[in-house]
């Protein structure tokens, strides 16, 4: 399993001393597939690597530097578009880590701009973004209605000139999920960072990342999520984190994330059976960058839907999507 090789090297970069060319190829393919190549490049900064490897790492670092610059510019543009609304704009995920200069942001791949705003300001935010050049991506009326009625975010929008996506969240998890984190408290306790933009508090950053990884989705890209969490954890006081996670109804998820982060990137942890399954899912990547353990991966895909909505609603949703020609990957 090459994902196992990848996490071993992220944990202890000196391990690359033992790799032959085949090992390097497997490591690089897994790192690219998990979108951890930039992180790997930073981890290997002071380590001797073969001649053919250094340029690959340099390219990866240059790409992440450009992504960080673009992400900050998008955040600035969104802030500009919403200026005058009196709405507190909270940056989430990669853009937030880069804006706050956190270790989790170093070498991180950043895709879309994710922001959190109070739910009752959504119509005004939507209008302001559209006026500033963002437009809808999804044409499908079912998808649009689905997002608006049940999701924790607006349907994705893309900027007409810059071709960059924005996800506008009003809470952390889909409205149909079992946990209901306190988004209002997250926004109220957010900290200002630059030019009227905010990031979540130290504890909320972790809770948000954990919710995204363990209470939502099928853990695709989970190794990167867990790396974020691993980097964010040392900044938080454990008791304060536990209290905050309990407040959001995500205490057991945060505890599991801490065990997984310690087991995969840290000094080890005592894992439950469920933790072991999650770990096996996270490490399902072979040396060609392909997903392996297909049955387990599919089981987590099913679980992600189970988590998102009650059974009857899930049946109706799957039936609608199937008729529209959607098939699981």
């Amino acid at each position: 399993m090459s994902a196992a090789l990848l996490v071993r090297v992220l944990r202890d970069p000196a391990q690359v001393g033992r790799l032959d060319a085949d090992g390097w190829n497997r490591l690089l393919a897994a790192a690219r597939a998990e979108r951890l190549i930039g992180t790997l490049a930073f981890r290997l900064d002071d380590i001797a690597v073969p001649d053919g490897v250094r340029p690959i790492l340099t390219d990866a670092k240059r790409d992440t530097a450009r992504e960080a610059q673009q992400a900050l510019w998008e955040a600035d543009r969104a802030g500009q578009a919403m200026r005058g609304l009196g709405v507190r704009l909270v940056l989430l995920k990669g853009t937030a880590y880069v804006a706050a200069g956190l270790r989790a942001g170093q070498g991180r791949f950043i895709g879309d701009l994710d922001i959190l705003v109070p739910r009752d300001t959504m119509p005004a935010v939507e209008r302001a973004l559209i006026a500033a050049g963002w437009e809808w991506v999804k044409e499908d009326p079912y998808d649009d209605a689905y997002y608006r009625q049940w999701m924790h975010e607006l349907p994705p929008m893309i900027h007409v000139e810059r071709d960059r996506m924005i996800d506008v969240h009003h809470t952390v998890l889909p409205l149909t999920a079992r946990q209901t984190p306190d988004a209002a408290a997250m926004i109220a306790d957010a900290v200002p960072i630059i030019n009227g933009l905010y990031v979540l508090s130290t504890e909320d950053r972790i809770v948000h990342s954990v919710a995204h990884m363990l209470a939502d989705g099928d853990m695709q890209g989970g190794l990167r999520n867990l790396w974020d969490i691993h980097c964010l954890l040392p900044d938080a006081d454990p008791a304060a984190l536990e209290a905050r996670a309990t407040h959001h109804g995500l205490a057991s998820h945060v505890r599991q994330a801490r065990r997984l982060a310690a087991a995969i990137y840290g000094d080890g942890a005592c894992l439950t059976l469920w933790d072991r399954l999650a770990r096996a899912r996270l490490l399902a990547r072979n040396g060609w960058g392909q997903e392996s353990r297909k049955l387990l991966v599919f089981a987590f895909y099913l679980r992600s839907h189970w988590l998102r909505m009650p059974p009857l609603m899930l049946l109706r949703h799957l039936w609608t999507k199937w008729r529209k020609g959607h098939r699981p990957q």
Binding site: A21, A29, I56
Partner: peptide, 12 residues
């Protein structure tokens, strides 16, 4: 043979 590749291509 035995070189570290810049890219992996897959035909699957």
């Amino acid at each position: 043979r035995g070189a570290v590749a810049d890219f992996t291509v897959r035909l699957q």
